[in-house]
Amino acid sequence: MIRVQDLSFTYHGAPERTLKGLNFEIAKGEIFGFLGPSGAGKTTAQKVLYKILNGFEGEVLIEGQPLAQMGKEFFERIGVGFELPNHYLKLTGKENLALFGSFYPKEKMRKTADLFELVGMEDAMDKKVEAYSKGMKMRLNFIRAIMHDPDILFFDEPTAGLDPVNAHKIKAHIVKLKNDGKTIFITTHNMNTADELCDRVAFIVDGELQVTEAPATLKHTHGKHIVRVELTDQQTAEFSLDGLGHNPEFMQFLQKGDVQRINTLEATLEEVFIHITGKALKEL
């Protein structure tokens, strides 16, 4: 669906490149995540892909067609959920959607009331956006991105500013969009969001991709292949996952007392990030 080869980008007047020779592919119906700290180049990469930044080096192909040659019809096929809320504050939520929706073919548009209901904002659609909370504005961002049923979706920090309940709603709908065959490109520095949503993730630091892989594979590869057992009397022991069911020491340990917890020691995505890049997200 999307193929990126040797993508580099330098902002006008900047001393060095923001993106340095990125290579990756996103398959149709895949959720692909760009993970990295602020300033790593995540948003810039997205901006190049949704054609708001021109003058890049390398090649970006959308279904085999060079992005640079695509006209305004490309924008009918994409939806963009921006990192920060960006609406006309003096217009109502409904008026905002009606205005921006008027630029798309009518037959592609989803019903406004359904969209507001989807994010639990049916009572707020006729209120001016200036009266919305940040979370509500972010949900309005989300439904604006999907209102014209695009094939390709770009979300920049899709759960930023949302409470856990609404973040869950948005994530669930992103998964539904993927199940409907949409291709989704997420950028985030939230490892939990990436872990929950993405089929594959790419770590980006200082404009360079460090690794591209499925989160489960990364966690498995970089984690310990062992299980830790904790008993209620504080005793703990670790056993290799290989042949665990036939390990007499493991069986014996289980019988020593009441089991409080059994965990596999796979790495978290954040630990994998630190391991691969040698940097913690908060340091950067």
């Binding site: 960006n86 609406h87 921006f100």
Partner: peptide, 12 residues
């Protein structure tokens, strides 16, 4: 307000 970016990704 960043609304200009929204126009940037419209089919116009």
């Amino acid at each position: 307000m960043g609304v200009s970016h929204v126009y940037g990704v419209l089919p116009i």
